[in-house]
């Protein structure tokens, strides 16, 4: 096996290094990748979408279809881990791996976590809402929100975190976030435009088309954040407890 592996990586390595000779210099401003689409996005995007963060406008608008499926990928992973690992009471009887004894609750850790969690969540909301103007957006904000819950689960235990955010709700919201995204796109379809053409909202909301794009993006980013929050938490609790959702790590 090792010899085959070495052979494969040798062939691939020679191939890739040969090809790298042919690629433009690092940071070459005239490379095709940096000229063709990039210039259009940089020059036109603010006019068309009134969002100064171009990564956001490309992500949630020009390539919004990709991003919707990206959210679906996350959702799919959440359901996959759930269906593979999650054990209901009936099947829980046969636990194989013995768990290490948990040390007692650590008051310093728990107090610090209690102080940190609201800050994290507030910051996460800022990251989601301010994604149009500064680095950030639905994925980043959602991950921070999710990690605030994971911190809770780490410093107390999973039961405590689940007490704050029930598993049923987690699943409900994870599908709800994607559904929000799809619904914003579908509404455009019913307003007579193509799927995800946020401009359709302009007449309805009484704003200009670029502003409608900006609002549409905010809407889908919120949907993304909800799904990412839920799935990050769900992935953690399932993986950390082997699907039993007892105390976890």
């Amino acid at each position: 096996m090792k010899k085959t592996a070495l052979l494969i990586i040798a062939v691939l390595g020679i191939l890739l290094l040969r090809a790298a000779e042919d690629l433009p210099f690092w940071g070459d401003p005239q490379s095709p990748a940096s000229v063709h689409l990039s210039d259009y996005y940089l020059e036109e995007s603010y006019e068309e979408t009134s969002v100064p963060n171009i990564v956001t406008s490309v992500l949630a608008d020009y390539r919004g279809y990709d991003t919707m499926f990206e959210t679906v990928v996350i959702f799919c992973a959440g359901i996959t881990v759930l269906i593979v690992l999650r054990r209901t009471h009936r099947r829980r009887a046969k636990v194989i791996s013995p768990r290490p004894e948990r040390p007692g609750a650590d008051i310093i850790l728990q107090t610090a976590a209690r102080l940190l969690v609201p800050m994290m969540q507030l910051f996460a909301l800022y990251v989601v809402a301010h994604g149009h103007h500064s680095p950030g957006g639905g994925f980043q904000g959602g991950v921070i929100l999710g990690s605030s819950l994971i911190l809770l689960a780490l410093s107390y235990d999973i039961q405590m975190a689940l007490h704050r955010f029930k598993e049923k709700l987690v699943l409900l919201f994870s599908a709800g976030g994607v559904l929000l995204y799809a619904a914003i796109g579908l509404a455009c379809l019913f307003l007579g435009r193509n799927f995800l053409a946020y401009g359709a909202w302009a007449a309805l909301l009484g704003i200009s088309e670029p502003e409608a794009h900006s609002h549409g993006m905010l809407g889908v980013e919120i949907g993304v954040a909800i799904t990412v929050l839920c799935i990050m938490f769900s992935l953690y609790i399932d993986l950390a407890s082997g699907g039993d959702l007892d105390e976890g790590l």
Partner: peptide, 13 residues
Amino acid sequence: HYYLGDWPPPYGI
């Protein structure tokens, strides 16, 4: 051709 988000290719999908 169906332009998603009404963005003409190659800028949109």
